[in-house]
Design a protein around this nucleic acid. Structure first.
Lengths: 240, 240
DNA sequence: CTTCGCATGCTTGTATACAAGCAGAGTACT
DNA sequence: AGTACTCTGCTTGTATACAAGCATGCGAAG
């Protein structure tokens, strides 16, 4: 019996979001509410609700009476997302050295640290999908360690755009070693209390995205939204 | 220029959001989709879509088959919002001294600076509602000055929670002078290039919220959500 | 008197019907 | 030939009908 305890629109939302971030739905691809409803076996209502949330998140663009599309990669938005993510993650680390009234409680510091260590060990041999999961858990755990796990949601939204953009160039993670090495440096410096070194390593780690973006934008410019052009509808003939 | 007709759910969203932030809808108050639809002259569909967005924003809590309520003030959430806002605004200022690849373009720096100056002049004599608008414009302009106006949306969402909480204690802005003074210090230090002084002043300015919160939580604890209790439905008799 | 069961009226969640508009093919008229 | 018009098929936006569940009051049974 399928677990129906969660609302349909929530399931549709997560399904679509994952497909978009994993590039199973390509940037710029058209998405029809009716088609999605048919494919997922639900009505248009929960599909619309999911698309509304994805639109607010910036992963989908809805053009009334024209159609909806998966948002193309916008370099400007990428820059904003990176800026916000770096600001929050760095501030989180920094709060370990300079506490602020906003700091929350840290449950099970030793257990968290141990879990992060195991996470890093698994990262080395992980495939692409698993690595992204572990990467997410690692950065989330780092913020929990500083008592700011509650702000992860905002970071995760920004990270979604960054991950999708990076996936454009590294469909297969051929070489984790460098990233894992950076992760280890960040974690060890943090646990040692050398916050200056940790933030420095974290900043460099997070800014890697800019070189990645530059590379992919040269190889596949059609996936980027540099113009403000609105899409138009076309009738085509296809085999079915 | 063709006037873009806005969808109903967007208007409902902004109406409700404003009412919630301005405390015209009290924290914890029940809101019925049917009643709202009737009052606003639309059907349940756009109302539901607006509530969905507000739920994601944390301003509304929806309990299936029980009802929906305006979210109560959650001290933990307030702390998170303050942390994120401070992180982003401070990082924005700091980028003026230490540029990063994420920095965006700054259009009309002189004009922006002049507008901010005029903004401060108007703040002194403004009433409560106007002051909150000017405060919003000021902080937004500050980020635009650093080339990070695009990240304002995220800050604004956090600021909504903070403003609502602060409104609980200062229904009437009796004394703007201190806040305006802080604003002026931040702006002048920034324009003078003394980023260290500017960030210091900004941090102190933003952390004012914690003392405000502590005061109001003692005077009106029922508006705060410290327990994880879920609401229940009650049938009551009222005059109509 | 107590207790259980059901009717009733509310809630949100989902499905469906209808409205408004764009794009293109075909056609009749100039 | 060229032009304008209508008709079809799609799109999203909105309204409405139906489904499922909770709280409560009433009534009957023990």
């Amino acid at each position: 019996m399928p677990t129906k305890k969660r609302p349909s629109h929530s399931q549709v939302y997560r399904t679509l979001r994952q497909q978009i971030i994993r590039l199973e739905l390509a940037p710029g691809a058209a998405i029809s509410e009716n088609d999605l409803a048919s494919q997922l076996g639900v009505s248009r209502t929960p599909v619309r609700e999911a698309l509304l949330l994805l639109q607010e998140e910036g992963l989908v663009e809805v053009y009334p009476r024209i159609g909806s599309v998966v948002s193309r990669v916008n370099p400007k938005r990428i820059a904003e997302a990176q800026f916000l993510r770096e600001a929050v993650e760095v501030a989180s680390l920094r709060s370990l050295a300079e506490p602020s009234p906003a700091d929350g409680p840290v449950p099970d510091r030793d257990q968290l640290a141990a879990a992060l260590g195991e996470n890093l060990d698994e990262q080395l041999g992980a495939d692409t999908a698993r690595f992204f999961e572990l990467d997410e858990q690692f950065h989330k755990g780092l913020m929990q360690l500083a008592g700011h796990g509650g702000s992860w949601t905002s970071v995760a939204q920004a990270k979604a755009h960054l991950d999708r953009a990076r996936l454009l160039i590294i469909r297969d993670v051929s070489d984790n070693s460098q990233l894992v090495k950076e992760h280890r440096t960040i974690l060890e410096s943090t646990l040692d209390g050398d916050i200056t070194a940790a933030t420095s390593a974290l900043t460099a780690h997070l800014r890697q995205i800019f070189t990645d973006i530059k590379t992919v934008q040269e190889s596949a410019p059609e996936l980027f939204a540099t113009t403000g052009a609105t899409p138009v509808r076309k009738t085509v003939i296809v085999w079915e």
